[in-house]
Amino acid sequence: MLINCVVYQNGTKLADIPASEISSYISRPDAFVWVALQDATPAELEEMQKEFGLHELAVEDARHGHQRPKIEEYGVSLFSVLHLVEPAPDNPKELNLGEVNVFTGSNYVLSVRNRSQKGFLGVRARCEREPELLQHGSGFVLYALMDAVVDRYFPILDEFETELETIERDIFSKGTARSNIERLYELKGRVMVLKHAVAPLLEGAGKLHGGRVPHICTGVQDYFRDVVDHLSRINALIDTMRDTIGTAIQVNLAMATIEESEVTKRLAAWASIFAVCTAFAGIWGMNFEHMPELKWKYGYVMALGLVASVSALLYWRFKKARWL
């Protein structure tokens, strides 16, 4: 679906145009066309390929989707794949993984957004408010799109940190070890989704500000370096969080072992107490004739008192040793 198709000249918006007129504007040396598509059909991608002269391999990747984040050069053009990580609308604890494919040439930018409901109208408005930067052309638009995608990672990372802190506070609460481990593994899975979006993009974005910079990015290297700095920071935080989650899982497993040990000690203590009672009952239950207490008037009371006294003594000793 076509979201918008706009031509810009010398950093200012010239006009909204139909897709069929794209080829007549991209031939101008001081103008470029910015097209945005959402969940594009094969027919729409084929039309854009003809209008912009897109490389067939890049179009094939955009058509199939589910690509690893990357930035590839095809002659004088760039093809970028960015992952859109968003909380699921029906369950904030789950993540939706969308994708935006950006084709960038010297006189055009084509963004194809898939499996995501959050658009980039704010990015377009930001660029139009800064005509002196938009004069850099399609390279600045690519930066603005990448910057918007990376900025959306920060709130998700903050949510992860808040959830991890909550779980850490519950680690030493009795009876929560199993549920904590389940929550930690679930959080670890979502952290890895973000990791898979950030790490490959960090590797690709590094080519846009250092070394042999593509011609499209000439003049805006400093802006791409800022994106790389943000990605590096996010990647470091993710690695720290993964280590913390691993440590928290180990602590929870240790707590579960300790709780099991406590239960074992309680069972052993009660078993010892009942073993004494069973021993006394077994002795007097044999009914030997030469056991004077069997015919004694107070023998039954004495037997019960002895059993109760020994059991109480054992209970006190186990309680003192914190087995009960």
Results as ranks from 00 to 15, higher is better:
1 M>I: 06
8 Y>F: 15
15 A>E: 14
15 A>V: 05
19 A>L: 14
27 S>N: 10
29 P>D: 14
31 A>Q: 11
32 F>M: 06
33 V>A: 11
33 V>H: 05
37 L>Q: 04
41 T>R: 02
55 H>C: 11
56 E>Q: 14
57 L>N: 07
59 V>L: 10
59 V>W: 02
60 E>F: 03
61 D>C: 10
63 R>A: 10
67 Q>L: 11
68 R>S: 02
68 R>P: 00
69 P>F: 03
71 I>Y: 00
72 E>S: 15
74 Y>H: 13
79 F>A: 07
86 E>I: 08
89 P>E: 09
92 P>G: 04
99 E>I: 08
100 V>C: 09
106 S>F: 02
106 S>K: 11
114 N>A: 07
117 Q>H: 11
119 G>S: 12
129 R>W: 00
130 E>K: 15
131 P>I: 05
132 E>M: 08
133 L>M: 14
133 L>E: 07
136 H>E: 07
136 H>M: 04
138 S>Q: 02
139 G>V: 03
140 F>I: 14
141 V>W: 05
142 L>A: 12
147 D>L: 05
147 D>C: 03
149 V>E: 06
149 V>Y: 04
152 R>S: 14
152 R>P: 00
155 P>D: 10
158 D>Y: 12
160 F>V: 06
161 E>N: 12
162 T>L: 13
170 D>H: 13
171 I>K: 05
175 G>N: 08
175 G>W: 07
176 T>G: 04
184 L>Y: 09
187 L>N: 08
190 R>Q: 15
197 A>I: 01
200 P>I: 06
205 A>H: 01
205 A>L: 05
212 R>L: 09
212 R>S: 08
217 C>M: 15
219 G>R: 05
219 G>F: 08
220 V>T: 13
221 Q>V: 01
225 R>N: 12
230 H>M: 03
234 I>K: 03
235 N>H: 15
242 R>D: 11
243 D>G: 10
250 Q>F: 00
253 L>E: 14
256 A>H: 07
258 I>Q: 15
263 V>A: 07
274 F>H: 08
279 A>T: 08
280 F>N: 03
283 I>D: 09
295 K>P: 00
299 G>N: 05
302 M>C: 13
302 M>T: 13
303 A>V: 11
304 L>R: 03
305 G>T: 10
308 A>Q: 09
315 Y>T: 14
316 W>R: 15
317 R>I: 14
321 A>I: 01
